[in-house]
Design a protein around this nucleic acid. Structure first.
Ligand code: FES
Ligand code: FES
Lengths: 138, 138
DNA sequence: AGAATTCCCGACTAAATTAGTCAAGTATGA
DNA sequence: TCATACTTGACTAATTTAGTCGGGAATTCT
């Protein structure tokens, strides 16, 4: 149960973008340096973030990325989902009604893990990019 | 962010033990079959669980494992910690005061991830083996 | 125009971790 | 004494992660 770099870097980079970018585009190299993240890896992540509508890009000299939405309106949970950081606590297929084994009943621990997942999601849904920037996190 | 099999299997097995074992020792093969878990893998896990004092073992014919403590007194968080399921949300050394990079200040996202970790721990600490068995989980 | 800068995109790979297996031994009860 | 069951360490296959690499396309500065 550990957070991978994909989700971690995506959030770090977006926080940096919200924190240092005042409307003007920020180049990926700048973000990467400040947060000391591998730049070619960040490119991958921002590709997805743009496709999902979190950031907008400007090409060429003085180009870079800007937030496409208000920092107050971007929930951490959304970022993680967009980037493909799974948050998988249960093991059974969420859509079908079959449990983790073939049996179509849920296993004894299902409610436990589902509850954990819900707890995590609720926490991450309740915090926005702006909250992190302004250190409004308990 | 996904739960590994180590932690998952350990909890499943202990729940099974609490649920079906009434004081009498339960053989690992029985638990493994019922939960359809690989037995030689479970052996590894129960080694640790015994060393940490969660279960007691009886060898020989009709042997097996019993809970060494009351099911009400075993928190899920304890099991995960004992088995080595990390629950790592932050990346910085928890003991030292240095952040995830060399800087001795914490990064902007530290509080976010620390909060997530605390949230998870609190949830898992609030639930006992007995709670899972008797389906007292939201 | 040309050069520099920056995003765009897919393919590929090395390292780490996970999720086990295997084999040999020890203790106990029927 | 035989079958059952725990004990323990070493070893390995498969998967996932965490990236790298290379070439391209758009934009602006000189
Ligand atoms: S985890 Fe959902 S049924 Fe077992
Ligand atoms: S995660 Fe603790 S300082 Fe960055």
């Amino acid at each position: 149960m550990k957070l991978g770099t994909k989700g971690r870097y995506a959030v770090m980079a977006l926080v940096d973008l919200a924190y240092y970018g005042q409307g003007k585009p920020l180049a990926l190299t700048e973000i990467a340096q400040r947060q000391s993240l591998p730049i070619s890896y960040l490119e991958q992540l921002f590709l997805k973030l743009r496709q999902k509508g979190f950031v907008a890009s400007t090409r060429g000299h003085l180009g870079g990325y800007t937030l496409a939405r208000e920092a107050e309106a971007i929930r951490i949970s959304e970022i993680l989902e967009a980037i493909g950081e799974p948050l998988e606590t249960t093991r059974c297929d969420k859509s079908s009604s079959t449990g983790c084994l073939g049996t179509n009943a849920k296993c004894l621990t299902h409610a436990l893990w589902a509850g954990l997942g819900a707890q995590m999601h609720q926490y991450l849904h309740g915090i926005s990019l702006a909250d992190v920037c302004e250190r409004r996190v308990v």
